[in-house]
Design a protein around this nucleic acid. Structure first.
Lengths: 211, 211
DNA sequence: CTGTTATGTGAATAAACATTCACATGGCGG
DNA sequence: CCGCCATGTGAATGTTTATTCACATAACAG
């Protein structure tokens, strides 16, 4: 018989395996057999650590949330200019998506959009906090004069995330036909122009990003 | 026995029924039985008009593409200002999404992202043309001085679509907890500010939208 | 060292679903 | 009016998959 590990470790192995499976086969292809095979255990053993598929998805939702939010809040708390922090979060997010295809797939998935409402509520909450984090940075920039003060922080944050997300969507549909990072960079340059132009008019020092 | 209709009519009925089903149950819930029930025919009869599920999805992809692109190109060809045309397409798109939940669900679906590559190629092409259409309007605006000429038309078009798409995603995950139209309007106002501010600096006449 | 318990497994069960088949019939060309 | 064929149907069929069960054993407490 295989080595026995405690349930804390097994749960993490299962969640990571699930994220891998989703990246390759989608949430629809997330079968117990696939997870078990990839995590190196039998199908039945999955049920020793989770009540069922739903609970695995719930754990995955929390895992993803902490990953994404963790990176962003760390960067947000830094001492760089608002623009530099936005850029850092933007690039970190794009890199995470490119390295973890299971992540956007989970976010887009019907299991999330049509399945258990509690899971959806958790993810919606995570997204709201993410938007808020970015919005706070934008507001910072408005306050210190980096950006024009008549733009809306929240909506500008959504603009930024929307760009990333739409790029990821097209990247996925086109089967990776272009470089996500390169596309994101083009989008960032344009976004930055739109954002700083208004401030520039007031004689700002920050013209370059300083990343 | 039921009334007999020719296959041209049946195909359209089936495609529309499929779009309805996707809106309610997702692409994963798009079963032959559901389509047949909703279109008022037996399961087996579906196969008189389509080779299988894949072919239904392919037909649906074309249908959606023509719907979305049709509206946009009509508006794009109008005589309004660039800003007004962008706003009209933006609002029309938002209204379409709100009225047709199957549309975003199809675009996000794993069937599209991981299934038949030919279907994905068709949709990717449609999106590219949509972006191009919007980009042409932006370029128009740059040429006639409505917008600053150093913004990038294509990337600005993507910005606009990304906003819509991200709003639709959050709307779907939050189970319609907010008004998509109201949220879109806030986003549009902010986008417009970012866009026209740069031009304003050059003494432009178009400060208001004129829709 | 020994018994208990958490951990592990192969095999069975049951449900959902796409597709096929043999058979029926409406509607149109002649 | 008649016969043909596109259209229509209920009943299989075969596959995939989540979940359960009875049984095994590693790891740890005492």
């Amino acid at each position: 018989m295989r080595e026995k590990k405690n349930t804390h470790i097994r749960r993490e192995e299962i969640v990571r395996a699930a994220l891998d499976v989703i990246g390759e086969r989608g949430v629809h292809g997330l079968t117990i057999a696939e997870i078990a095979g990839r995590a190196g255990m039998s199908d039945a053993n999955i049920y020793r650590h989770f009540r069922g598929k739903q609970e695995i998805l719930a754990a995955l939702g929390s895992f993803i949330g902490s990953q994404v939010l963790g990176r962003a809040t760390r960067i947000a708390a830094g001492k760089k200019t608002a623009l530099a922090r936005l850029g850092a979060i933007f690039r970190a997010h794009v890199a995470l998506l490119a390295a973890t295809p299971g992540l956007p797939r989970f976010i887009f998935s019907e299991e999330l959009h049509l399945g258990d409402p509690r899971l959806a509520a958790v993810i919606a909450g995570t997204m709201a906090r993410y938007i808020e984090t970015l919005g706070d940075i934008v507001a910072d920039g408005c306050r210190n004069g980096e950006f024009s003060s008549d733009i809306s922080p929240r909506e500008t944050a959504i603009l930024l995330l929307g760009m990333i997300q739409f790029a990821a969507l097209r990247w996925s549909i086109s089967r990776g036909a272009f470089s996500l990072e390169a596309e994101a960079e083009r989008l960032w340059v344009n976004f930055r122009r739109l954002l700083v132009a208004r401030a520039a008019r007031r004689g700002l020092k920050n013209r370059k990003e300083g990343v």
